[in-house]
Amino acid sequence: MILLNKFPLRLRLTILTTVVLTTICVLLTTSSVFTAQKMYAVPAEDYNFNTTLSNLSKEPPATDRINNNFTYASVAYMFIMIVLGTAASYFVAGKTLKPVADLTKRIETIDENKLFQRLEGFDTNDEVARLAASFNHMILKLEKSFNHQKQFAANAAHELKTPLAGIIANIEVLQLDKNPSVQEYKEVLDDTLTNAQRLSTLVYDLLKMNNAINADICESFDAKDMFEDIILALSENSKVKNVLIKNNISDIMLFGEKVLLQRAFFNLVQNAVKYNKLNEEVVVTAAQNDDFVTVNIKDNGIGIPEEELESIFEPFYRIDTSRSRELGGSGLGLSIAKTIIEKHNGEILFESEVDVFTKVTVILPKN
């Protein structure tokens, strides 16, 4: 069977059909010959034993000759049928596989200039049509992925270009002044530092997006302790808006790569603080069942318009560009969080109402 895999599919089908046909012909011929010999055999009581010895030197009885002729003819016809059946199998296999050959030729014509060309003309309800439909579906996903990557590259280039342009512009302005003051030097340095820090954050976040999870370092850890660390790290941010972060989790264990999950939840809580209203609160709760742990992060902030919910996980996507830049961030926080959660076979969901609340639900498997 392994040797057959080296032959073309048409020849393989022909060989397998010939093997089946030969087996059936041999069985039918054998059974026919055996049945004929039984039906036309001369009973022993019909022989005259006194003349048996004298008949040995004579020709075989007519019944034996008929049986022999029937056997020879049956074997000859069997070989003829096998040969004709093999030829017919080869012809039928070629006709049957013609749509597959056409599909192969159509796919071979696709090159880099028409990479996303669809396969049309396969309207039958057979396996070939389903294969063509699956190929078209794959092409659609590839096209979407390519467009996403192009958009990501364009956005990344824009995000990197903006702080670099600011740094270059400040230096050029400083160079135009023949006798810049100390204050001017200080302003340029401060602005350069701000842009450099923005670049550093952006590069760090881009690296985090491509950070793969290592199954060897997955572990169980206490969710409450992790959120306490996150709250401590965000204490300065929350004080600016006087936002209270409540950690209402108890006796809940999470399983995964702790550093990555902490990064994901840090981004989610940071967003809840950043886009919250003054003097409000962020509430973190969790629940579990036999298979999953559900973590909820809810704020009473500015909310997200319903039509924007599907786009918030796209890299560099911002609902209000000017306000988002003012609040800081690279526009990658939610993309990173989603990537990490999905690498843990989890799911992240958003519910929101403008100027009322935003609720993030993260569902993670227990192991």
Results as ranks from 00 to 15, higher is better:
D177W: 00
N155Q: 03
N147I: 03
R198V: 01
V182H: 09
V240G: 08
A196E: 02
E257D: 12
H158A: 05
K178E: 05
V203M: 11
L244C: 12
T194Y: 02
F146E: 01
L199N: 04
N237Q: 15
E184M: 11
I252C: 08
E184T: 09
I171L: 10
Q197A: 04
N179I: 04
S250Y: 10
N147Q: 08
Q183F: 14
N248T: 04
N237L: 14
N242M: 11
F221C: 12
N242S: 13
S250F: 08
Q197E: 13
F255A: 04
V182S: 13
N242W: 11
Y185C: 13
V173E: 11
M226L: 15
A233G: 03
F255H: 08
L199G: 08
M226E: 03
N242A: 14
L164H: 04
S200G: 04
T192N: 10
I231R: 09
Y204I: 03
A153M: 13
Q149M: 07
N237A: 15
I171A: 07
K241P: 06
N211W: 01
L189S: 13
Q183R: 05
I168E: 09
S220R: 08
S238D: 07
A157P: 00
A157C: 12
N214E: 06
V173R: 00
A157Q: 12
